[in-house]
């Protein structure tokens, strides 16, 4: 029988058992791709993180945890903590700005929803680097923002925003906001408006409606959006590089620096794995908390 066949008409347990090969064949391209281009390099980086730097920047295959101990060095730890704080701030800002926007879009008439979602995604049509350069023009001392504010008489002298943490934050929030808005939109769109009205009718103030009904029922979207923003902004390096200047090095820049400038691949790999470990621990702690929360609910 050919490996690609029509699925059985009724998907019963029996029907599935009869064709164990079909699902496997359909999965093969994706699994193969992930294996060759994701798992394999990851394993390589993991291996390198235990090696040491050769005299001329190569990899010397020794086994030691020296690189990991190096990460705990206050100099590097500070960068990691600063990056965590910035990624957290980016996530919070994206959530605060993205939730009302997603809510607004989800409650528009269906034909307008598409238009608005398109507007949210349009920035993706332009290269990210180009858009970051555009922000440099906006934020610099003689830039659009300062010129406009001075023109309006709101400030007397230009603000020094470019090459600061604020500039990086603005750039990151700008860059990752769509990743927050889209999952939030999907979650809010599924929330029946009658549930909001029911809570309102049952004496809930607008804030209580939000906290007791909207928030718990859109939580999966909030979690997805936060992960989609937090993880890439933690490792971001283009935005901090261009908007933050040399003063505010983030962990993404540090890794880039170790690989491309210092040519210390083993140390760069170790930092990358520490970063991954931190994210993984965070996500698992959340999942654990969620499970015990659900367990308690079901017991009651």
């Amino acid at each position: 029988m050919s490996p690609i066949a029509f699925p059985p008409k009724t998907i019963s347990e029996q029907g599935r058992a009869e064709r164990p090969g079909l699902a496997g064949w359909l999965l093969a391209p994706a699994l193969g791709w992930m294996g060759v281009f994701f798992l394999l390099p990851l394993a390589l980086v993991f291996a390198i993180s235990f090696a040491s730097r050769g005299t001329y920047g190569g990899v010397e295959w020794t086994v030691s945890v020296a690189n990991y101990l190096n990460v705990i060095d206050p100099l590097y730890l500070k960068i990691v903590l600063r990056s965590l704080a910035l990624a957290l701030a980016t996530t919070v800002w994206c959530l605060v700005l993205g939730f009302p926007l997603a809510y607004y879009i989800a409650r528009l008439p269906a034909r307008w929803q598409g238009v608005w979602l398109l507007l949210v995604m349009i920035p993706f049509w332009t290269n990210f680097l180009v858009r970051t350069y555009a922000w440099m023009f906006m934020l610099r001392t003689e830039g659009l923002l300062n010129t406009a504010l001075i023109g309006l008489g709101l400030i007397a002298s230009p603000m020094e925003i470019l090459y600061s943490t604020t500039a990086v934050l603005i750039g990151l929030v700008y860059g990752y906001l769509p990743f927050m808005v889209l999952p939030l939109y999907a979650a809010i769109e599924r929330l029946a408006p009658s549930l909001v009205e029911a809570a309102w009718d049952l004496y809930a103030s607008p804030w209580a409606v939000f906290r007791r009904v909207i928030l718990p029922l859109t939580k999966p979207g909030i979690v997805a959006g936060c992960l989609l923003v937090f993880i890439p902004s933690l490792g971001a390096f283009i935005t901090p590089d261009l908007l933050g200047g040399a003063k505010t090095m983030m962990v993404g820049n540090l890794i880039q620096h170790e690989f491309l400038v210092v040519r210390d691949w083993p140390f760069g790999s170790a930092i990358a794995f520490v970063l991954m470990g931190l994210v993984l621990i965070g996500v698992m702690a959340y999942v654990k908390a969620e499970e015990s929360d659900r367990g308690q609910k079901e017991e009651r």
């Binding site: 009658s194 549930l195 009205e197 029911a198 049952l202 004496y203």
Partner: peptide
């Protein structure tokens, strides 16, 4: 939320994340 009326919705609009008890007690808790 300040009117002395309550509505039984057409498709019930029960809160899916609350039990029967949680749904019924919602207004009193508020």
């Amino acid at each position: 939320n300040h009117r002395p009326v309550n509505l039984v919705f057409q498709h019930y609009a029960l809160f899916p994340h609350l039990t029967v008890f949680g749904n019924v007690s919602f207004g009193l808790e508020m």
